[in-house]
Design a protein around this nucleic acid. Structure first.
Lengths: 386, 386
DNA sequence: ATGAAAGCGCTAACAC
DNA sequence: GTGTTAGCGCTTTCAT
């Protein structure tokens, strides 16, 4: 409690606002106003960030003037502007995007939710996203769902709390309920789906050539003379899994090959799943003579396992897969793949998001298919008989 | 200009502050105060984020009360608290970390600067960082330098503008000047270096077993009977390059092998560099009988190229490398490597950073060496002669 | 050309 | 136990 410097009372003092960094008090008994230094007003000596206030102080001008100078606004004398800019440089001034965004209601940050950074496909996508985001002056905040629906929901919640200006999402394997996404979309949060998209919300979607790629791979196998083609598909709920399977089925139909349910295995992309599938197919009276793995890792695993089992690739068994170019080249025999362009997917997705952000809901929804490319290698090149 | 409702003057009206969302005016000629609705005060109907103000309005209490309720502070009646929390849930309230951090002077965000997300090592590190950051309630902002010093400087500047609470850095190949880093460190920005560290600033450093790993790999080669061991090193400025070379030199010395300068090639990790090195070594009167590539990709490239050239691995040429386990297993013959644990590096680095943040400059600087592991495979297993 | 002040969402210090 | 208000850094009217 304060003491009045006039009547020495210490029971009738009330705080009466602040003035120039000092606290103003009023003594009710003698009707006297007085001020006192604000306690603990001293700033820490080490200051990481210079603020416009610091600059204003140094220059002896108001913060408004500093702001104008630093933002190259009109209505400021060139002399003042230059002087301020010079000081700003000297003081190592660096605008606080945080405060800036705060008052404009935006953060210049976009959020990305992906299953797993370590997967080369997503790493490539991220790289593309980063590049485009940088060009637009945005920062990127990344979350991994680790294929868990629960984590995904938490991630999105967190990104939202960080007030990201937009969201790029590729769903986890587990995700089948989209009410969170839907509610955000309805609230007008700019959002774009890529790769693992969801059809239940009317967001723009960036997809890869899943159907077409699968079709091309299987058709290639057929043209090489393979007749009994099996598919190592992913989880049934996953859309890319469905699309790739459709491409497979379509190619078989188109070329008049029988569709055999026992050749279609759905699984979780794990190594165990891949190897167990090969084992079980070999038990069949008519085992497959080619395998289309919708995930390149499974294809590589099948190649390795076949070698252990002494199966000749490509003569006894042809193998094709979706995906990663580098690994596909390294494995022996080299893997025929439908190559995707992850970086491109990221770039396109980010570009789309910035369009949505810019057009503030007036954009017309558009889906984009990022083209892939069939790369033929040894694993599917059957030697001509005889 | 406003018109006075009392004397109808429109020349002597001044604005006199705001009250309850209305603008307050004062007519100087008749000394009359009046208010008017603030123009364009209507909020957008679609609001992405509920604020405590919204909740306060709905509940008919003050924002302070709402804040207290949502933060489980004392001095609030359980009844009010519960009622507010219920409403908050209903309105889908999600605190604005942005505003929260703003006023506490922190962002609950850390920045990471790495050369390239797509490299599996860094992807693994990121994954580790994310995990630990999540546990601490922090978000992660990632930038890629793409091995460019200039980009790195810009990245750090950007992260700083976003007011990250701390920085995790692995420098670009090009980076040899550290004044930016040093100045930030001096200002007290919490910072930890990992992998591509810099010795000129007194930050905590997380390193891998570069020296020890190189030593173990080369010693293994020697024990397998290889005598003329060459090294495919990285850029001379890069510390990991130096350390790994030291390990190599130490192993040679320890086992009494001659150090031949012509067996030591520094380069940029590119495929061209690797292949050119092999070519040039084969021209020597005494070509090496083993190669230690400090970057696993170079090792893999050497294996592939050797196959093309018809060189027998491991009999004619032994090969070992640092790094990525998966690819090393896939290549044929499988590559002996010193395996690093990228995720572990990320985890340890992030943990260290949070210690620095928590201990506010009172921490004692500490370096950590993340252990690796020698994994012996075919590429270095010379068959016993005879 | 420049200064004063509101306001973005939230917390904490204070008044009652 | 609850309301009031300053202030975090910045932009942006408005007044001078």
């Amino acid at each position: 409690m304060e003491t009045c410097p006039k009547c020495s009372s210490n029971t009738s003092i009330i705080r009466a606002g602040m003035i120039r960094g000092k606290v103003r008090y009023h003594c009710k008994s003698c009707d006297f106003h007085f001020t006192k230094e604000h306690p603990e007003k001293s700033r820490p000596t080490k200051q990481i960030h210079t603020t416009i206030k610091d600059i204003a102080q140094v220059m002896g001008v108001s913060i408004a003037t500093v702001s104008r100078a630093l933002n190259n606004k009109s209505d400021i004398s060139p002399k003042t502007r230059e002087a301020i800019q010079k000081i700003a440089l000297e003081l190592d001034y660096n605008p606080n995007m945080f405060a800036k965004g705060f008052q404009r209601g935006e953060t210049k940050t976009i959020g990305v939710v992906i299953p797993n950074i370590k997967r080369p496909f997503f790493a490539g996508v991220l790289s593309g996203i980063q590049e485009v985001a940088n060009e637009h002056g945005y920062r990127v905040m990344i979350c991994q769902s680790n294929e868990s629906f629960e984590t995904e929901v938490t991630n999105i919640q967190g990104l939202l709390a960080s007030h990201v200006d937009g969201l790029l999402i590729s769903h986890s394997k587990e995700t089948t309920r989209f009410n969170q996404i839907k509610s955000l979309f309805d609230k007008g949060l700019p959002m774009v789906h890529f790769d693992r998209i969801c059809t239940e919300v009317d967001t723009p979607k960036i997809r890869q050539e899943d159907f077409g790629g699968a079709y091309q791979l299987v058709e290639h196998l057929i043209q090489q003379g393979y007749q009994r083609i099996a598919i190592l598909a992913g989880p049934t709920e996953l859309l890319i899994s469905q699309k790739r399977k459709e491409g497979y089925l379509h190619a078989l139909k188109k070329h008049g090959l029988e569709i055999r349910p026992e050749y279609i295995h759905h699984g979780d992309f794990s190594k165990e799943f891949a190897l167990a599938s090969l084992d079980s197919w070999r038990q069949l009276p008519e085992p497959p003579d080619a395998i289309f793995a919708i995930h390149y890792l499974n294809a590589v695993e099948i190649i390795q396992y076949s070698k252990e089992l002494g199966i000749q690739i490509p003569n006894e068994l042809g193998i094709v897969g979706f995906g990663d170019e580098y690994l596909a080249e390294i494995v022996h025999p080299a893997l025929t793949v439908f190559h995707l362009f992850p970086q491109k997917v990221g770039e396109v997705a980010a570009q789309m998001l910035f369009r949505v952000i810019a057009e503030k809901g007036n954009y017309k929804r558009e889906d984009i298919l990022v083209q892939g490319k069939l790369i033929i290698r040894k694993s599917s090149l059957k030697k001509p008989k005889g």
